[in-house]
Amino acid sequence: MSVVDRPAGPTRRQTSAAAQRGGYVVAAIVNGVLLWLLAVEPGWRAVPFLTEDAAAVVPLVGASLAAGIVANGVYVLVDSPVVRAVGEMVVTGIGLVALVATWRVFPFAFTDPAVDWEYVTRVVLVFAMVGSVVGIVVALVRLVLALARPASAAP
């Protein structure tokens, strides 16, 4: 392969293990901050367009964030394709449950009549749910491929 034939950016194998682990730490920290903002300070009640019905959804959103923290912590310790694929399926699955609950409860009260925010929000929720299903399928395929790969061929 000549220089002209190579892809532009770094490939997965060119990314250092330290950089990957650093990314996992950053992701865990971001999820931790979001969980803190949701559950502690200022809390979900500070969001003006959320109704009290959001109380039914907040634990699921919190569980999704907590699962992301745990998964990224595990990835820091064990960075294997099998572990990442399983973690991605679990975290995305919990997120999908939270999205479906949000769709069903729909804990939003929009007051701006100039924009149909309910419609916009429902469209975003549908895209997020479809993306989650696709993400789960992709992670499942990656898991099957990682399990099918001989141990000596693993990166």
Rank of each mutant, 00 (worst) to 15 (best):
W117K: 02
R45D: 04
D112L: 11
S2I: 06
R122A: 08
P155H: 10
D5V: 07
V33W: 12
A39I: 04
L143H: 05
V70I: 14
V83P: 01
V78I: 09
A19M: 12
T102M: 11
L147S: 02
R122T: 06
G22S: 14
A67W: 04
R12L: 05
T51N: 09
R122I: 10
L38K: 02
V97T: 07
G93H: 12
T121G: 08
L38W: 12
D112G: 15
L38C: 02
Q20D: 08
A109G: 14
G93Q: 12
G43R: 00
G87S: 08
V141N: 03
N31A: 15
V57K: 02
V130L: 07
D79P: 03
F106L: 10
V61C: 06
F49I: 06
V123P: 06
L147C: 13
W103R: 15
A101M: 07
V124Q: 05
V61G: 04
R122K: 15
A154E: 15
V141Q: 07
G22H: 13
G9K: 14
F108H: 10
R13M: 11
V126Y: 11
D79M: 09
P7Q: 07
E41H: 06
F106C: 08
Y119C: 01
P155K: 00
V141C: 06
L60K: 03
M1W: 13
P59W: 13
A54I: 00
S152T: 15
A8R: 14
A54F: 15
T92R: 07
V33Q: 00
S80Q: 09
V97E: 03
Y75P: 00
G95T: 08
G23Q: 08
L125E: 11
V134G: 06
M89T: 05
V91S: 05
V4L: 11
A66L: 15
P81W: 10
V141R: 09
V4P: 00
D79N: 14
P10D: 13
V124A: 10
D116L: 14
S132R: 03
A71G: 05
V4M: 09
V58D: 03
V40D: 01
V123H: 12
W36Q: 02
E41L: 07
P81H: 10
V115Q: 11
W117H: 14
L143T: 12
I29T: 14
A63H: 04
V134Q: 05
E88D: 13
E41P: 01
W103P: 00
V130K: 06
A56G: 06
D53L: 09
G23P: 04
V134Y: 09
D53P: 00
V26L: 14
W44V: 02
T51I: 13
V74N: 06
I29E: 01
V90L: 14
L60Q: 01
A151H: 14
P59H: 10
V100R: 11
A154M: 15
R21Y: 11
R45H: 10
V76Q: 04
L38T: 05
V137H: 12
A85R: 02
A98F: 06
A153H: 14
V61M: 03
V26G: 05
V115T: 15
T11M: 03
W103T: 12
T92V: 09
L125P: 00
T92S: 07
G87K: 03
T92F: 08
A8P: 00
T11P: 00
A98C: 03
V83Q: 03
V138H: 04
